[in-house]
Design a protein around this nucleic acid. Structure first.
Lengths: 159, 159
DNA sequence: GTAATTGCAAAGGATTTGCAACAGT
DNA sequence: ACTGTTGCAAATCCTTTGCAATTAC
C-alpha cells in the first residue's frame, strides 16, 4: 500500500497508464523489505492471487527503477535483484560474502558526499549509485575460510 | 607482455597449468587499457592469430578476477566487461551515462578508506570493490538531455 | 603417464520481443 | 475510439557445461 501512490504519480507525469498489474507489482515491492528477484516477485504476486506475467514484471521493474523509487542490484548471482528505497540511506552499499552468499547492507553518509563531489567535477548529473564489496563475512572467516592468493606478494595493492 | 608473469605465478601457486591460451588471454587483457567484453577479447585474440575458444576466455577471465589482477565490471549492458588493475587506484568507480553509454573512470583515495572502515566494522574481509554511478554525462546535458522525473517533488532524496 | 585443459556444440538461464486480445484515458 | 499494455511463447543473448582430443607437468 503505502508508497504506491508515488509510483502512480510518476506514471501520470510520464503520461503512462496506471494499470492493475503495475500497481500490484509496486505493492509487492514496497511491502517487502528485502532484495527481490523477478522470480520472487512473481511468486509473491501469485500468492496474492494476482496473475501477472513475468514479462510485465520485467517491464514494470524498469519503470520503478527509472522512477528512482527502486534500485537494481547485482550480487553476482547471474540475475538482478530489486530493493525499494524508503527508509534507506540514499547511498548505501552491500557487503557480499563470496563463501556463503550472505548480503549485509552498509550505510555511510560520507559516501554520498564524495560521490556527488566526484560526479560534479566531471559535470556529471548522478541519478543512481551502486556500491558492492565482495569478500568474506565474519562468520565465514571464523569458520576458517580464507581469501585466495593471500600469500603472494603482489605489486598491486589488493583491491 | 609486461604483467603476464604475475598471472603465471598465481597459476603455479594454485597448482594450475600455465597454458598458451591462458597466457594469450592475459596478454591481451594486460595490453589493453579499456574495459573489454568477452567478445572483444576474443576478437583481439583472433587478430593476433590465436585461436582461443570463447569458453576458454570465460574460464580464464574467472581466474584473472580471482587472482586480483583483473576486475569485473557491469555497465548495465547485459554482459560483463573486464579491466586490468595496473596503474589504477585500487578502488575506482565509473560514471556511466544513461543517454550515450559513455564511461568515465573516477578515482578517489578516500573511497578506499571509507569502504575499508565500513567493512572492518562488520568484521568483513573485503576482496574487491565495485562502484558505479549512473546518470547523465556533461556532453549529453549540454545537448539538452535531462534526467527523468526531475520535476516531481519526491519524498525520497534522489539516489 | 597422469591429470587438467581445450574447443566445439549443446544446454541453461535470464531477459526481451512480436503480436493478438484487452484495458486505461 | 485511440493509444498503450498485457500475456503468452518464441527468440535472443550471455554464460556454462559435457565430452573426446590434446597439452602441461
Amino acid at each position: 500500500m503505502s508508497y504506491v501512490h508515488l509510483f502512480r504519480r510518476y506514471l501520470r507525469e510520464q503520461g503512462l497508464p496506471v494499470t492493475q498489474q503495475r500497481e500490484a507489482v509496486a505493492e509487492v515491492v514496497f511491502e517487502s523489505g528485502g532484495h527481490l528477484s523477478v522470480d520472487e516477485i512473481e511468486g509473491l504476486l501469485r500468492e496474492r492471487g494476482e496473475k501477472t506475467g513475468k514479462a510485465t514484471v520485467y517491464r514494470t521493474m524498469e519503470m520503478l527503477v527509472k522512477s528512482g523509487l527502486v534500485a537494481e542490484r547485482d550480487f553476482g548471482e547471474g540475475f538482478k535483484r530489486y530493493e525499494h528505497l524508503f527508509g534507506q540511506m540514499p547511498v548505501h552499499g552491500h557487503l557480499i560474502c563470496e563463501e556463503c552468499g550472505g548480503v549485509t547492507e552498509i550505510q555511510e553518509v560520507e559516501l554520498k558526499r564524495i560521490q556527488d563531489r566526484v560526479a560534479a567535477l566531471e559535470g556529471f548529473a548522478p541519478a543512481r549509485y551502486r556500491l558492492e564489496i565482495f569478500g568474506l563475512c565474519a562468520v565465514c572467516r571464523a569458520a576458517g575460510h580464507e581469501l585466495e592468493w593471500k600469500g603472494l606478494s603482489c605489486p598491486i595493492e589488493r583491491v
